[in-house]
Design a protein around this nucleic acid. Structure first.
Lengths: 338, 338
DNA sequence: AACGTCGATGTAATCGATTCCACAAGGAGG
DNA sequence: CCTCCTTGTGGAATCGATTACATCGACGTT
């Protein structure tokens, strides 16, 4: 592959001049510029990003470590992150943690070794040594969706409390009184926050959230299935299950179906995170939708702000309830079952 | 960030010795080794991958350019690719083309600039100059899922002809005679191949595939919706629509639903690419499943073979039909409608 | 006419690793 | 006791860029 030396030789100038033309430095004569450009063209020369990064100490690359690529929420996030980054002249390297802390660490380490300029993380756990090191070592970093309390790192996330309140109002209005939740890992903020929001919203109606109605999931479909089966085996099963992510909702659906039961008649279902397929499931699923694209874009702007020396800001955007028919009744009229 | 020089100073050896320890070169004394390791530990030193790549002319990185991250098929592919690559000691950088040739080119160019060791591509078009250059310039390259005819590049893909034949048998058995297809872009192999397979399978039953029953889509949901509306507006609409990817099937479902019609009674539906949600859609969707994980792994092994000097082989794996209820009747018994 | 300024260019240092080569010390073999 | 080989080590070149510094005309000013 042609190097800058080859271009210099071809254009009969020094490598310095070639470099100047490429980085359009002002003091280059028009004549030299055309000769260099012609040489670049003739040789099909492309600057070696590796060499450039070594010298300039910047890679114009962002690392994004997400909890699970197979979760549509995160792939949408990844897409918007890449889009905004590209618009700002950065590339993105995605690391998929698969909800496993050790994999997350592997990716953070690898990304740091590559000297990425900034890091976007949606942590799977309460904070591994790797991540703390990264934060401490001064690599510009921003948390997306989930975060780790106590670290001085900006957070870009959606606030679901209002939407959860709306959801509980909706469920209560439909006459449901025994409400259960499938929680995510307690080590994640989204895991615990959503349970809190749910509990608080129920409290406003004087409805308790007993421990047996709190199932421990891990944001994966299988755990949603397992927890839902547990609920159905209870002496007094819940009337509604609120899955705190879309994959666990899928698992819940699997469990209900396996028993030959029906949603919402035998068990109503709602989910956190709205995805396109929820419109076409049987029945269409009521969900809380996050402004995913906005989150991704805001997160990129935040890291880039830090990278380029501006002060980055945390961002919190509201989520909203999307009512469909998986909790019973139609969406428009809130009458209780006949 | 600490460099190899700092480590050398701390351990009171030369940088050469540090490098030897790090790459466990045989001739280093035990004493030197422990001193270096201690220094590495004390400084929290991690080798700069950028510098290393510049010197060794290898990045131990694979580029993967996929057509659309929002398509679950491709995200599953990406996941298995990353997994296998990691097992072989490589990292993966994913580029999302969003089915847009110019974006695909952008990513290929960026990846090449970064001097990735190998490239995995699922081309969105018939072959851009970028891609040809990459192939010609000798960057180890493998096509996954889709490919470009006439290039001497190994292809790892699923063969759907058998499954399509099974699908047509299933549909014919159910009494369907007016079968339509939503094709992908003609420039992609999967776009044209699936239509051919469908046409051939129909021919075996003496059923024609008229042009009006071939809708032109682009592998995105919106095109599936549009094409399906067109079908429904026909004087003699088809009885079945076969969407050649899962997103267009989603669009088709949208279109049917928007008209207040039902699947399969008013229009039966089948799709290429099976995804988890198809089990829970209303109705569950009959689909052709690809061995996605196997494809991803095989593709990685193929590029790595080329990178490491072995001869890479093309791989073709069979897809299989998964019958559900979106085409009418039950899956087990193939009797025609009562 | 002498001098300072400015634009265009080249030389060489530099980034952080790897690796070739030279060299010293020590052991084996004659 | 001398040579030869092996082992461990350091110096320095190298990868492909960027950039500080030096140089050299040409030009304008006094």
């Amino acid at each position: 592959m042609a190097s800058i030396k080859d271009v210099a030789a071809e254009a009969e100038v020094s490598v310095a001049t070639v470099s100047r033309v490429l980085n359009d430095h002002p003091s280059v004569s028009a004549a030299a510029r055309v000769r260099v450009l012609a040489a670049v063209d003739a040789l099909g020369y492309r600057p070696n990003a590796v060499a450039r990064s070594l010298r300039t100490d910047q890679t114009r690359t962002l690392g994004l470590v997400i909890s699970d690529v197979l979760n549509p929420y995160f792939t949408e996030l990844a897409r918007s992150v890449e889009e905004e980054a590209r618009a700002l002249g950065y590339s993105v390297i995605i690391g998929n943690a698969d909800e496993r802390p050790e994999l997350q660490d592997h990716h953070i380490r690898t990304l740091l070794d590559r000297r990425i300029d900034g890091l976007l993380v949606s942590p799977t756990d309460g904070g591994s040594p790797q991540m703390l090191d990264a934060a401490l070592a001064g690599t510009p970093m921003v948390f997306v969706d989930r975060w780790i309390p106590g670290l001085d790192v900006p957070v870009v996330r959606a606030d679901g409390t209002g939407a959860v309140r709306d959801l509980v109002a909706h469920l209560h209005g439909l006459g449901h009184r025994r409400l259960a939740i499938i929680a995510g890992p307690a080590a994640t903020t989204t895991g615990s926050e959503r349970v809190e929001a749910f509990r608080d919203a129920l409290a406003a109606y004087g409805v308790p959230l007993p421990d047996v109605y709190i199932g421990q999931g891990d944001f994966q479909a299988e755990s949603g299935r397992r927890v839902t089966e547990g609920f159905l085996d209870l002496p007094v099963p819940p009337e509604v299950v609120f899955a705190t992510d879309n994959l666990m909702a899928l698992g819940a659906l699997d469990a209900v179906r396996a028993r030959g039961l029906r949603v919402p008649d035998d068990l109503a279902l709602a989910a956190f995170d709205d995805i396109r397929w929820f419109v076409h499931t049987d029945p269409p699923i009521t969900a809380i939708a996050q402004p995913t694209g906005d989150l991704g874009r805001a997160a990129v702007r935040a890291v880039v702000d830090r990278i380029e020396g501006r002060a980055p800001a945390s961002v919190t955007l509201p989520a909203r309830l999307v009512v469909r028919s998986s909790c019973g009744e139609s969406s428009a009229t809130n009458r209780s079952q006949p």
